[in-house]
Amino acid sequence: MTIEISLQVNGVSHKFAVSPTETLVDLLRRRLGLTGTNKDCGMGICGACTVMLDGLPVSSCILLASQADGAAVTTIEAIERDGRLSPVQEAFLRHGASQCGYCTPGFIITASALLAENPHPSRDEIVEALKGNLCRCTGYKRIVEAVESVARQGGPT
């Protein structure tokens, strides 16, 4: 059995016939080759697979592709614009907020979604927003500092 869905991914419209158990992360990675979205826990806890669904950060490993029918998905590949890093990406680079980097795309998606909603979040609001993304390398400090630096600029994400 397959389900017909339509999905806008990074601004491009697609139609897919998906199985009822196919997750969004597998669809993005296998069918579209968007491997910037990494896979880890498969239970929606670590946040490595975070993508934006209609502007909100979601764990794509516990979202069935069929549940995303009609939605607009943004992945890490569409965060940079016109050959330039987004302010969040550049801040992660400058602040050393990416070490092994496996969690990085998920953090950047979560932070970008936060800043789109609230361009000047407080430190507490940033930590609250990032609590669903796990990182083993950085101890979070430089990640929070990177997001804070963009929040201070208050520019678009």
Partner: peptide, 23 residues
């Protein structure tokens, strides 16, 4: 000198090829 890492450029763009990402 405190310098940003070259590889982070690719990591923040989602271009890092962890083994599962190699086509």
């Amino acid at each position: 000198m405190a310098l940003p890492r070259n590889d982070a450029l690719y990591k923040v763009r989602g271009k890092a090829r962890y083994a599962a990402n190699i086509p």
